[in-house]
Design a protein around this nucleic acid. Structure first.
Length: 830
RNA sequence: GCCCGGGUGACGGAAUAGGUAGACGUAGGGGACUUAAAAUCCCCGGCCCUAAACAGGCGUGCGGGUUCGAUUCCCGCCUCGGGCACCA
């Protein structure tokens, strides 16, 4: 595309960007007179590939939002930084023998340049970088506080190990049992690692979701991830052996139907039963096989259940007092609940399948029953009474599994109770209430180089000793080779002079912890650092924290729902508990940005060759056009394909505004016409509402409609300037340029936001729609507020209406003031 | 399997305390300007019927229902996207 005429976006955009920088127009100012507004983007990992047009979408939105807030008189904090620890830089280092720091700095410079040409209002003086020792000092400091409170602990449990990345991973880093990053199948590997006790915060993480203005889908994801379930723990005595088996169940009401127990193969009690088990060889073999299977095999195998009977071990059902067999089976997971279940095949599909295979008794203890209607309901809809009866009979005799609630039977004194009543009473008699979570503690150590060193020293005599806070940061040392050792130790283990140190506690010989923190560490608290980035004595000062308080608007991808957004909430709550922050939640309001897909409908990626570079778009169309286009594409949170043709529409709009601006400023100033005033104030109202609600596409549409009206009528300089202000957050350069040629003083970006005046919003005339039997048959203009009688009288005479009502009986006349009339008619009965 | 979202012209999408479906934009068609093209400006633009216009009919994934009136509310399906998943 050629640039023609006077509108030279390159020149205008570059010169304003320079001026804003000189004037420090976007510098953050704390002010007690102003309300504050903290607007934040999820900060990027500066990858070597640079930005594609999808990346700026969220950044443009926060830019619009923060500019809007500034014009509304708020003290705005809108910063940017870099989440720069992580595997890609490290892998690049291994391949090319370049220190990650070098490539990271280079990538940051490129990112910053690419971002800057889009014209954002970031206050770069508050830029942060998670790999700065001055920054990660505080990441390490938080770890020490967690350690001191017993929330960071060493564990030797088997963890998720990625054989390709050669590091342990947290549950959150997996996707279908594969490494989220490289797709390798994860294996379970027992090794020493650091774990954070996020499960202590499970309830608070769950409950406080209620207080947040977040998309429901993200809240639901977090609820699923935390996975709270209420139930009971029940002890089953083992005949002739001391230790009972404790099971967790959400259906204590089915206790009378528990006909066997199942333990996870890894369950500790299995070893305790060893001397009683007569088929130990078989048991051991099954346990070995289970251990060999990776997560995929164990779960994907799905349907066909396997297990081994523990011969010689018999449990006693505390309700029926009957002896029941005990199995180990890999469909029971050691890490969930108590690692043991009571199997109720009549009321659990999995137990039912297992019982069928091993020929175990199925005893129905809950019959389908509807207490509201006092009858046996249809279990399956759309079937005949006979079939329904047949299903009912199968359930009663244990030939079919029924997982629903109903009425207790075969349950002694509990017979006749509803499932909910039975649940409570049986729990009271035979067990105790218990709540479990799917959420597991956060495996926090990585056996890699490019991360924050965990500030711990291992002393031969004192054991695990935290690095004194005064010695922070523990700086990441230079290494010869960045490659993981593969032995479960990080490359840091090879640096003797770094590893060997003195114990801060006894002064004896100590060794540094060589594991590093996961990528999520630095991003779990970074928003706080923007409040006070230069502070060397605290991660944030009390005053600054008190002022900025919490992030008012947080924007980023939905893929962080169960990773970053859970970790950060966890750390924030911990920092609240130790008095560092004064709020319970870090992000009050969250909007998630939909992806910009490639023109082919696939995810934009080098691999598909569908990447569009924003730099080129800015060169060709200008930053303002790019910004307007990305916001105009569709609803902000929706995934939409890029279309280079369509950007023309935004470019044309910008050019038309330019022409209008030139016309208005060059001609003699005139009064705005009523149409222009009405269009302007409708736009003010709409744009104001829509920016607040993140509905940028309709805001831009309203601006287009307004400008289209202006082109056909007279607009004063003053009113056109108001229009420019509405457009300013979206297209900051062209509006500043035109503003400077009008009467505007100073920068348009700090001019007070326009207010819609009610008198221009309502017109005296309204259009009344005339319907006959609900179908539109005509319309007419009348003055606002006409009575029903007058309107109906007029409506009958409107052209094209008569033939629908003449000779018919009017049954009813529906009237909606200032909107419509509807004649309900029918034929004359003869 | 369970839980969330969605399905509207050729395309991106507007409009839901029930009240003119298709705003705005892209692509397309026609015209003006031009030696010509690009750009710009004006007009058309859901489908059927019609030479065309008018009139009429149909139309918001499918099938029912409530209502004077349903894209919007209710019931039952189909389908796409996402989250969780042998979680007891």
């Amino acid at each position: 595309m050629q640039t023609r005429g006077e509108y030279d976006h390159k020149k205008i955009e570059r010169s304003w960007q320079e001026k804003w920088k000189e004037q420090e127009l976007y510098k953050t100012h704390e002010s007690d007179e102003k309300e504050k507004c903290f607007v934040l983007d999820m900060f990027p990992y500066p990858s070597g590939e640079g930005l594609h047009v999808g990346h700026p979408k969220g950044y443009i939105a926060t830019d619009i939002y923060s500019r809007f807030q500034r014009m509304n008189g708020k003290a705005v904090l809108h910063p940017m930084g870099w989440d720069a620890f992580g595997l890609p830089a490290e892998n690049y280092a291994i391949k090319n023998k370049v220190h990650p720091k070098v490539s990271v700095d280079k990538n940051i410079a490129r990112y910053k340049e690419q971002l800057s040409i889009i014209g954002p209002d970031y206050d770069w003086s508050r830029e942060i970088n998670t790999t700065d020792p001055g920054y990660y000092k505080w990441t390490q400091w938080i770890f020490l506080q967690l350690f001191k409170k017993g929330l960071a602990y060493e564990s030797n449990e088997p963890i998720n190990w990625c054989p390709s990345c050669q590091t342990g991973l947290a549950n959150e880093d997996l996707e279908d049992g594969k490494c989220e990053r490289c797709g390798s199948v994860i294996v379970k590997k027992p090794m020493r690692q650091w774990v954070l006790k996020i499960t202590d915060y499970a309830d608070r993480l769950l409950n406080d979701l209620e207080t947040l203005d977040w998309p429901e889908s993200i809240k639901v994801s977090q609820r699923n991830w935390i996975g709270r379930s209420e139930g009971a723990e029940i002890d089953f005595e083992i005949s002739g052996i001391g230790d009972p088996v404790t099971v967790f169940t959400t259906r204590p009401d089915t206790l009378f139907g528990a006909t066997y127990l199942v333990l996870a193969p890894e369950h500790k009690l299995v070893d305790g039963f060893k001397k009683n088990i007569t088929n130990w060889g078989e048991v051991e073999k099954y346990r070995e096989e289970t251990k060999k299977k990776d997560e995929i095999e164990r779960t994907a195998e799905g349907k066909e259940k396997t297990g081994v009977l523990l011969q010689g071990v018999r449990a006693i059902n505390p309700a029926t007092k009957k002896e029941i067999p005990v199995y180990i089976a890999d469909y029971v997971l050691d890490h969930y609940g108590t690692g043991a279940i009571m199997a109720v095949p009549a009321h659990d599909k999995r137990d039912f399948d297992f019982a069928l295979k091993y020929d175990l008794p199925v005893i129905c203890v809950v019959e389908p029953y509807d207490f509201d209607q006092n009858l046996v309901p249809r279990i399956v809809s759309d079937i005949s009474d006979e079939d329904s009866q047949k299903i009912y009979e199968e359930i009663i005799v244990g030939k079919r599994c029924f997982e629903g609630k109903g009425r207790s039977i075969h349950s002694n004194i509990y017979d006749g109770l509803s499932s909910d009543e039975a649940r409570g009473k049986i729990t009271d008699s035979f067990g105790r209430k218990k709540i479990t979570y799917k959420l597991r503690d956060w495996v926090f150590s990585r056996q890699r180089y490019w991360g924050e060193p965990i500030p711990i020293i291992h002393c031969e005599s004192c054991g695990v000793v935290p690095v004194p806070e005064n010695d922070l940061p523990v700086v990441l040392p230079e290494v010869e080779s960045y490659a993981p050792t593969g032995t479960g130790e990080s490359p840091l283990a090879d640096i003797d002079e770094w590893v060997t140190t003195t114990c801060p506690s006894c002064g004896g010989k100590g060794k540094r912890e060589t594991n590093t923190m996961p990528q999520w560490a630095g991003s779990s608290w970074y928003y706080l650092r923007y409040m006070d980035p230069q502070n060397t004595s605290a991660l944030v000062s009390r005053e600054r924290e008190a002022y900025w308080n919490t992030v008012d608007m947080y924007v980023g991808g939905a893929e962080h729902a169960t990773r970053h957004l859970i970790y950060a909430r966890f750390w924030h709550k911990f920092l609240y508990d130790i008095g560092v922050v004064s709020t319970l939640e870090p992000f009050t309001r969250l909007q998630h940005v939909g992806l910009i897909m490639g023109e082919d409908g696939r995810k934009m990626s080098k691999r598909y060759g569908n990447v569009v570079n924003p730099d080129e778009i800015v060169v060709t169309y200008g930053a303002d056009s790019l910004r307007v286009y990305e916001m105009f594409m569709g609803p902000f949170d929706q995934n939409i394909s890029w279309n280079t043709d369509s950007i023309m529409g935004s470019r044309r709009f910008i050019e038309r505004v330019w022409k209008m601006g030139k016309k208005v400023s060059s001609e003699k100033d005139s009064q705005s016409s009523p149409e222009a005033l009405s269009a302007l104030h409708v736009a003010i109202k709409k744009v104001t509402e829509d920016i607040s609600a993140f509905k940028f596409n309709t805001a831009i549409s309203a601006l287009m409609v307004c400008n289209n009206t202006f082109e056909k009528t007279n607009v004063s300089k003053k009113d056109f300037s108001l229009f420019l202000q509405l457009l300013a957050p979206f297209a900051p350069h062209i509006t500043e340029e035109l503003w400077s040629g009008m009467e505007g003083e100073g920068s348009i970006h700090v001019a007070p936001w326009p207010r819609a005046e009610e008198k221009y919003l309502v017109s005296d005339n309204v259009t009344i729609v005339i319907q006959v039997n609900g179908k539109m048959r005509g319309e007419m203009q009348v003055t606002r507020g006409e009575t029903k009688e007058n309107i109906i009288g007029l409506a009958r005479k409107v052209e094209g209406v008569g033939k629908w009502i003449d000779g018919k009986v009017i049954v009813k006349e529906v009237f909606v003031p200032d909107k419509l009339v509807n004649f309900v008619v029918k034929e004359h009965s003869t």
